Computed example of a mutant assay.
Amino acid sequence: MAKRELEANLEQYELYLKQSEQLEIEIEVLAFQVPGVKDMVSMKGLGIMTSAGFIAEVSDIKRFTHPSQIQKLAGLNLIENSSGKHKDKTSISKRVRARLRALLFRVIMPLVSKNKEFKMLHEYYTNRKVIH
């Protein structure tokens, strides 16, 4: 019985893999119909699935006039936790779109490792001296 169950699970897994591959092909075809996706994919370290995920969360990127607006949409804008005389640390707001924030986090890792410009920016921001 265990052997039969394992075979059934393997068949189901193979079916899921086929469906996943077909979905990825459909997403790729649809994503390239969206303006700006070709430019995003041309960046070293950024793939079609992450570009499609970004477009799905942000929609039309032309509606934003400044990158900080996308940052705020993702909940990555800095806020100060304070109440009356109490002043706490500054942290990110974590409001609005958690999936966009998670996608941006997952995207930045390959960008930093494969894209020279992003690597330089990352090194600058992680190694700079903070003046208080």
Rank of each mutant, 00 (worst) to 15 (best):
E5L: 10
L6Q: 11
E7A: 13
E7T: 12
E7N: 13
A8C: 05
A8E: 13
N9Y: 10
L10I: 15
E11P: 00
Q12N: 13
Q12H: 12
Q12I: 10
E14W: 10
L15F: 09
Y16E: 15
L17D: 10
L17K: 15
K18Y: 05
Q19T: 00
S20Y: 14
E21R: 14
Q22H: 06
L23Y: 09
I25F: 05
I25N: 07
I27A: 01
I27R: 03
E28T: 14
V29Q: 15
L30F: 06
F32W: 02
F32G: 00
V34P: 00
G36F: 12
V37M: 05
V37N: 01
K38N: 08
D39R: 09
D39Q: 15
D39W: 03
M43S: 08
G47M: 06
M49I: 13
M49P: 00
M49T: 03
T50E: 09
T50C: 04
G53T: 01
A56I: 05
A56L: 05
A56T: 05
E57Y: 06
I61S: 01
K62E: 10
K62P: 00
K62Q: 09
R63W: 02
F64K: 01
H66S: 04
I70G: 01
I70W: 03
I70M: 11
I70T: 10
L73M: 12
L76R: 06
L76V: 10
N77W: 08
N77H: 14
N77Q: 13
N77S: 12
L78Q: 13
I79L: 14
N81T: 12
N81H: 14
N81Y: 09
S82M: 11
S82E: 15
G84V: 09
K85Y: 07
K85N: 09
K87G: 00
D88V: 02
D88G: 13
I92A: 03
V96K: 13
R97H: 14
A98K: 15
A98C: 03
L100H: 09
A102M: 08
L103T: 03
L103Q: 03
F105D: 08
F105M: 03
M109G: 00
M109N: 06
P110K: 02
V112G: 01
S113N: 12
S113V: 15
S113Q: 14
K114F: 12
E117T: 05
F118V: 07
F118H: 02
K119E: 11
K119M: 07
L121A: 07
L121C: 04
H122Y: 15
H122A: 12
Y124F: 12
N127S: 14
R128N: 09
R128L: 08
I131T: 14
I131Y: 14
I131F: 14
H132G: 01
